[in-house]
Amino acid sequence: MAEITCGSRSTREINADIRKALAAGEREIIVREPGARHNLGVGILEPVRIRFAGSVGYYCAGLIDGPSIEITGSAGWGLAESMMSGEVVVRGSSGNGAAAAIRGGTVVIHGDAAARLGVSIKGGTVLVAGSCGYMAGFMGQKGRLVVCGDAGDAFADSLYETACFVGGRIQGLGTDAVVEAPTPEDIAWLDSTLAEYFPGAPRGKQFQKVVAGRKLWNFDKREWKVWQEAL
C-alpha cells in the first residue's frame, strides 16, 4: 500500500505521486491530509483503491474509469463528474453537481447532496443516504438515482429514462416528472443495493419512484401549453 501525505504540497505534486504509485503497480493508495484541495484523483483509469483521508475540493474523481475511490470527509462541487465506471464513496456530504453526467459506476454519498445532484446522467447509479438539494436528476437519460431522505425542489425535471427513487418527502417535482409505484423488480433492486451500502436505510417498498411523463420527448404544437410551462 502506498501512502501519500499532502502537507503543504501542491495539487500537481500530489496527483503526480498518485500516478507514480500507479505506475509502480500499487493497487491500494491512501492520501492523507487532502485539506479540501481541488482536482484530486481526476482521470484515473486503473482498477485501484484510493482513499482520501479527509475532505476534498472540486472535481475529485472526475473522468475516472474503473477505480474505487473513498473520501472520508466531504466533497466539493463536481464530484465524480462524467465517470465511466468504478465506485466513489463519500462518508460526508457533497457539494453541487455531484455525479453529473456519469455514464456508469456507482456514486455513494453518506451525508447530504447539495443542488444539481446527478444531472444529465447517462447510466450508473447514484445513492444518497441523506437528502438532496434543488434540481436533482435534471435531464437524466439512463441509470438510477436513489435518495433515502428528502428531495429538494424541481426534482427529476425534464427526465428521459433515468429512474429516480425517494425514501422521504419530495419538496417539489420538476416539469414532466411523474410519481409512480415501484415495480417488484425495483423493490428487490433497492433492497439489495441499499443493504450493501446503507444498512439502516428505508426498505425498498417505502420509496416513491419518479420517472418521465414523456410529454417533453417529442414536440407537438397541440401541446404548446406544456412547453410554455416547461420553458
Binding site: G73, S93, G95, G111, A114
Partner: peptide, 21 residues
C-alpha cells in the same frame, strides 16, 4: 466559498456541508 478556506485556517475535527438553495 470553498471548504479549503475553512480547513486551512481552522484545525480540528468537524464536518462541512454545502448550503442549500
Amino acid at each position: 466559498t470553498e471548504e479549503i478556506a475553512i480547513r486551512s485556517a481552522l484545525p480540528g475535527t468537524y464536518s462541512v456541508r454545502e448550503a442549500q438553495v
